[in-house]
Design a protein around this nucleic acid. Structure first.
Lengths: 233, 233
DNA sequence: TGAATGCTTCGACTAAGGTCGAACCATGAA
DNA sequence: TTCATGGTTCGACCTTAGTCGAAGCATTCA
C-alpha cells in the first residue's frame, strides 16, 4: 500500500510548535543545552527534555554530554537542508507567521544556516566562487577545483584536514529567502569561521543574524567580487 | 523569539499518517481524485476530504475540478523536493517502516519522483548528462548547454515550448535511495514522457515503480552512457 | 558529606484533532 | 424530474500527545 520510508513520523516530529522552535534555534549551528532550548521554545524544562529525546530518537539531533550539561545540535547537513526546504514552502505559501520587522531585513542580508553563511551575502559568495571557477560541478556533486583549493589556502583555511573528515567538503544549500543556492559543507563552515576570526562579522547570540562590520563588508566584496563589480580591474 | 517562516504548520500537515500517504501517492506525479486518495490513505471519503482541504490551504496541493470529480496534484517541484528530503531523513535514521520486499528493489532501480525519473537509472542519466557537458552549472543553477539542447531536440523534446513555460527547465533533486542527484524540472519530466512514448518504459498504475523493457534498458544505456561504459568509442 | 545545579522520569490533567455516521449539496445521466 | 455518483459539511466520539508539578538521579563544587 505504501512505499518508501516513513515520512509521517519524521514530519510529525518537526510538526510540533515547540520542537519546531528548537530546531529553528539549532539552525544557528550552535550546540544548545536543554534549558536553553526550553527557553527558546517557551516550555518548561521537563517538556523540553521529553521533546528532545523524541527528536534524538528520530535521528534529527546529535546529543553530547559535557559535565552536567547536555548539548544538542542538528544531526547533520541533511536535516538542516530539509528544514530550509520547509521554510521555503512556508514562506512560499504566503503564510509568514512573522510580520516583517526590523530584524527581518538583517536576516535576509546575512544569517547563519546551520553552520554556514546564508542570505544575500551567502548567495553572492556562492555566485562569485562559481563564476571564477573556484568550485564547480564534477560528475554528481560540487567540488573544490585546484585553483579553489589554492584560493582557500591563501585565506588560511586548512583544506587538507577538512578533506580527511568524513563530512562533505562542498554542498549546495537552497536559500529560503533568496531562493538560490549558497555554499554549505565543511568548506562553507570554514569560511564563516574565518570571517569571525578576522572580525569581519560576528553572530548575534540570540538570533541567526550575522552582522558584518563596515570593513568586513568591504573585505568580503574584495574577496568575492560579483559580476556587477569590477573583477580584476 | 522566533524568526523565519512557520515550519511547524507545514510539517504538521505532512506529519499525519493519512496525509503523508496521500502525499506519497501524489509523488507518482499523477493527479488523483478524492476517492482514490482516500483509498490510498486507508480512510473514509469524508476524512480524506477534510485532509485534502487542509493540505490545499497549506499550499501543498493544486486542486482542479473536472466534471463532478476533483483532482489533486502536488503544488510544485518544491513540495516534491521537500518530500524526497524527508524520505531521505526517514531512510537515513534507520527506521524504514517497510521491510524490504520484492517491490523495494524495483523502487530503487527506477521510480517516478513527482514527474521525473528517480532511482538508480535516474542518477545514471544525470551523471551521464553532466559528464558529457549536456547540462552544467552556470552561476547559481543547473542549465542546459547548447549541445545539450541539440541533444534533447534530437530526442524530439520540444525545448522551446518548455522554455516558454514558467517552470524551471533543469533542477537537481536529491534521491533518497541513491543519495545522489538526479534531473528534475520540466526537462526531467519531458525525458520520462519520451521514454513512455517510445515504450522504453511504463509506469505501474498503483505504485511509483517504472518498469523498463529489455529493449528500453539497452536504448537507455546507449543514450546515457556512464563512465564505466565506452563513450564514443 | 552535603548542597546546588542540570536533567530525566512519573503521573495526572487537558486540549487538539483525527475519525466516521448521517445529512446535505452539486453535477451528470436517464 | 428523478436517480445515481462524487464530494462537502456537521456533530459527536475518542484516542493521542503536549503540558507541567513533584520526585528522583547524576554531576559538580564546597
Amino acid at each position: 500500500m505504501k512505499e518508501g520510508p516513513d515520512i509521517a513520523h519524521i514530519a510529525a516530529l518537526i510538526g510540533d510548535p515547540a520542537r519546531a522552535n528548537m530546531l529553528t534555534a539549532l539552525m544557528s549551528g550552535k550546540a544548545l543545552t536543554v534549558s536553553e532550548l526550553a527557553e527558546e521554545a517557551g516550555v518548561t524544562i521537563q517538556t523540553a527534555s521529553s521533546h528532545l529525546s523524541k527528536l534524538d530518537a528520530g535521528g534529527l539531533l546529535r546529543p553530547r554530554k559535557q559535565g552536567r550539561h547536555k548539548y544538542f545540535s542538528l544531526a547533520g547537513d541533511e536535516v538542516a537542508h530539509v528544514l530550509e526546504g520547509l521554510m521555503g514552502l512556508a514562506a512560499g505559501s504566503g503564510q509568514l507567521r512573522r510580520r516583517t520587522g526590523p530584524k527581518d531585513a538583517e536576516l535576509r542580508q546575512a544569517r547563519v544556516c546551520y553552520n554556514h553563511l546564508a542570505g544575500d551575502m551567502g548567495t553572492q559568495m556562492f555566485d562569485s566562487l562559481i563564476a571564477r571557477g573556484l568550485v564547480g560541478l564534477d560528475g554528481e556533486r560540487l567540488v573544490l577545483t585546484d585553483t579553489g583549493a589554492a584560493f582557500a589556502a591563501d585565506f588560511e583555511i586548512d583544506i587538507e584536514s577538512l578533506r580527511k573528515a568524513r563530512a562533505p567538503l562542498c554542498r549546495e544549500c537552497l536559500d529560503w529567502s533568496e531562493r538560490r543556492s549558497h555554499l554549505a559543507g565543511s568548506l562553507g563552515r570554514a569560511f564563516l569561521t574565518r570571517f569571525e576570526e578576522l572580525s569581519w562579522a560576528k553572530r548575534d547570540q540570540k538570533t541567526r543574524v550575522v552582522s558584518f562590520s563596515r570593513d568586513g563588508i568591504r573585505a568580503f566584496h574584495d574577496l568575492f567580487p560579483t559580476g556587477s563589480l569590477p573583477v580584476g580591474g
